[in-house]
Design a protein around this nucleic acid. Structure first.
Lengths: 194, 194, 194, 194
DNA sequence: TATGAATGAGTCTTCATTCAT
DNA sequence: GATGAATGAAGACTCATTCAT
């Protein structure tokens, strides 16, 4: 029954994304999520330890998958420049394609206790490491400045993209996020290039 | 008794910064803040509409004051480059000097309902406008590239600094934030310069 | 405000005795007790740590008081025989006078987790010690058999009286419990006398 | 398939004794008992009406069997005195041999709603009647005092033995219960003899 | 103004019980 | 008969807010 089980697990996660996006984490009662998922309240607890576990799972499953995609596409790039462009393009495109998920990851997931933040940190770390590796590759190939502070730079790059997504969301998605890729990557490359 | 009133108002805000920083917004009971401030629970409601209003006031008062400082120092700068450097230096220095406030603004203030986010947005807007104006000055003076997307750039700059502060906080302030000013500003200027 | 506080504390305890007696511990919701006491649900928690604490307090306060009376009256007796008679008479009389309390102590208080049983044991211990001391006095004065096993005897005496009360309660108090004092004490004295 | 059926029924009862003894009635989930018995949760309901029915059945089956033994051994006694001694010896010995059952009957079975108590009463009644008959025999044979209140006496005797067992259990079985038979019976006989 | 005792709405979670397979 | 996933009712407890003093 593993298939049915997984199906219900994903169904609850889908419902949670929707409800969290609309009402925020603290405004989302388990009963609301259960109703949206078409299951009984108690059923939630057959798949998740508690309410917070839904949020953590959401992050791990959905954002983890996204970050996996970033890594895959970066691996296929032929240069550091190209990798950075690909990552940013994917980052913006994927969140633009999944605005509910974007809302949850940018807004709701920040609303959480320390315990959760640690989990989130764990999920994000591969992404930060990915950016760092791209920077190191660029330095090695001579594309990027050798004196670059890679730790600081990866923070600045991640923070910049993160804020671009948040601003787009808070503008109520009135413009295209994907259209910002060029400007963003141009900004980064000028900052990085030798 | 306006002076006494203001004094108590600030006292409660100080207590709130401390309690929020230690326990987070949702873990901070009004009674805890009242005890820390040395007043009765009910007294809080003579100065604030409700719990959320404390957070909003905190942001408006404390962060607003900070942003005022940024504006004043930018006004005294002799070039756009210099203004950007001054803003970043002050941004990092002030939050490093007030780690509790930093914690509350970077972590706790993000934990809030949409209504609050709008308020926060209002407080932050002058800061974003300030950055935008610096960019426009730089373009006008020929220091920055004329084709620069100022709206996007100000998002990237703010997001980058914001993440730098958050990373420093989550590292448990193991390194100096002020020491990151040079690297950060260098990153920005390379991205911006013509 | 200590007087008002004590008054409300006792009021809640009174309500709890009534509700526990009618519905049993597990059938008594906090809301039922609160309504009976004429206070809000939350008020209960200003006076008691949790639901079990009400039961523990009930035992400590009410039964403790009763046992105090037993001790006082035993102290005034002129012989061990007399003390035993006085204790039994008081034991039966008090519980007959307070049938709700009797119900709670004989029936409901037995329905509890180990943690509570320990508390109950603590409250009852002075009573068992009292009986033991009466037995020792009786042996010392030559009234009771010197070879008596006092520990066992005090168990048998307490258990016998306890069961007499329970049986009377389960009979729905169809007969007088006080009328059983003579028979009970006669039974004990024959068993104990030299 | 009556044999297989009975076997599973007894298996569940065995599991219930174990689980109740360890976790108490309210701490024992059906699922825990099912796992201990090696059956599915739902299977329990093919053999028992509901959770309380397990407790009632436990009492009826296991304690009923015990009481049957008491009756058989009393029937074989040649005098009332002897019967009383035999009953007490068996009572103590059997519960000492089956400490889990002892725990459940002395502690857990008391934790129950009125409905259950009535059922328990029904199971115990034959035992009380047995004691009563022994008393009547003793009076008839002149061994016991003719003016004895048999109803009260049987309560006192049962309560005394019951408490002796409970005390032994709560002492964590640090001493031999069987060793208390002599002292107990001696106590009773002195109280009863003419 | 200040107090803090009292309020009571709100919700996560448990677990006995059912029923489709 | 046997299973065990699903159900959903039920309730203890918290805490922001009020208001009589």
């Amino acid at each position: 029954m593993a298939v049915g089980r997984l199906h219900k697990f994903e169904g609850i996660l889908d419902a949670a994304v929707k409800v969290f996006a609309e009402h925020g984490y603290h405004g989302s009662q388990i009963s609301k999520i259960a109703k949206e998922a078409g299951v009984a309240d108690g059923t939630i607890y057959l798949y998740f330890k508690n309410k917070e576990d839904i949020l953590v799972s959401l992050f791990r499953e959905r954002l983890g998958r996204l970050i996996g995609k970033f890594e895959a596409s970066a691996r296929d790039s032929k240069s550091a420049e190209d990798a950075l462009r690909t990552i940013c393009a994917l980052h913006y495109a994927e969140l633009e394609r999944h605005p509910l998920l974007a809302h949850v990851t940018q807004i709701e997931l920040r609303q959480s206790a320390l315990a959760l933040r640690k989990e989130i940190g764990k999920t994000l770390k591969p992404y930060l490491r990915l950016i760092e590796n791209v920077l190191l590759d660029g330095i090695a190939s001579g594309a990027f400045r050798p004196e670059l502070n890679v730790v600081l730079s990866r923070q600045l790059i991640f923070g910049a993209m993160d804020e671009a997504v948040s601003s787009w969301l808070l503008s109520e998605r009135k413009y295209s996020l994907a259209a910002q890729v060029e400007g963003t990557v141009d900004f980064f490359l000028r900052a990085l290039k030798s």
